[in-house]
Computed example of a mutant assay.
Amino acid sequence: MAKIVRLDPLGQETSVTTNDHVLSALLKNELTVLQECGGRGMCATCHIFITEGMEQLSPISRREQRTLGAITTSTITSRLACQCRVLGNGVVVEVPAGMYLGDMNEIESLVGRRADENILHPLDGRILVEKGKLITRSMISQLEVTRSDVVTHLAHSKLV
């Protein structure tokens, strides 16, 4: 049976099948979610806040707790969309402001322009480029190192 999930601040409601991940609701609404770790709960690219209905979601796993513990913007309402399953109605999801580092070509095309929104680190959620700040070539090299850190982290996580 379908459950209704509300996405804020978008003000959209969407239905998901019972026991589907919140990530399904985000993707269904064509929101860009990187899923850097492939939905295994090891990166922060699907970090969300649950403003209502936390009890309508599956419990937090140890892996999700570890990942949330490393995210600098994590709060008691934080979850990873790829890890929490919708069990009942009344879940309200707040998508964090900002975008996570995606394709390097995408970032390179923005050099010389101001960031439309914060660009966030995919492992810990910290802000790499603040909204309104100029994106420079030196920022590109910092982002490339970050991308390498993510690959290393995920490779190490597969071994654990």
Rank of each mutant, 00 (worst) to 15 (best):
I135G: 09
L154W: 07
S141D: 05
R114H: 12
L134C: 09
S141K: 01
E130L: 01
E144S: 10
D149G: 04
G125S: 12
E130R: 07
L120M: 13
S148G: 00
R147Q: 08
D124L: 02
A115N: 04
L120W: 15
A115G: 08
R137M: 04
V150L: 11
P122R: 10
P122W: 10
S138V: 10
E117K: 09
P122D: 15
D116N: 05
V145I: 06
Q142H: 02
Q142W: 00
M139H: 04
H153A: 14
E117W: 03
T152W: 07
R147G: 01
G132D: 12
V129N: 10
V151P: 02
R114S: 12
N118S: 07
L134F: 14
V151S: 08
V129T: 06
K133D: 10
H121S: 13
H121M: 12
G132L: 08
R137K: 09
V151M: 03
T136E: 15
E144C: 00
K133S: 13
L134Q: 14
R147T: 05
G125I: 10
L143R: 00
I140D: 08
G125C: 13
V145P: 00
S141A: 03
K131N: 05
S148F: 05
L128T: 07
G132C: 08
I140S: 04
S148E: 07
I127N: 06
N118L: 05
G125Y: 11
A115M: 09
I140G: 07
S138A: 10
D116C: 00
L123I: 15
L123M: 15
R114I: 06
E117L: 05
T152N: 07
L143S: 02
I119Q: 11
E144V: 06
L143M: 14
L134E: 15
D116P: 08
E117D: 06
G132K: 01
T136M: 13
L134S: 13
D116I: 04
V151C: 03
T136V: 13
Q142K: 04
S138I: 04
D124E: 01
G125E: 08
S148M: 04
L154V: 03
D124P: 00
V150H: 00
R147H: 03
I127V: 15
V145L: 08
G132Q: 10
V145E: 09
T152M: 06
R114F: 05
D124M: 02
I135F: 13
L134P: 09
R126H: 15
G132V: 13
R114D: 12
V150Y: 00
E144Q: 12
R114L: 11
L128V: 15
I135W: 06
E117F: 02
L120V: 13
L154E: 05
D149C: 07
L120E: 15
D116M: 03
R126A: 04
R137F: 02
D149N: 12
T146Q: 01
L154A: 04
R147V: 00
D124V: 01
N118A: 10
V151I: 10
K133Q: 11
R137S: 10
L123C: 15
E130S: 13
P122C: 11
H153G: 03
G132F: 12
R137D: 11
R126K: 13
T152F: 06
R114A: 14
D149A: 05
R114M: 10
Q142S: 06
Q142Y: 02
S138K: 08
D124I: 02
D124Y: 04
D116R: 09
E144A: 15
L123E: 14
S141Q: 04
Q142R: 01
L134V: 15
L143K: 04
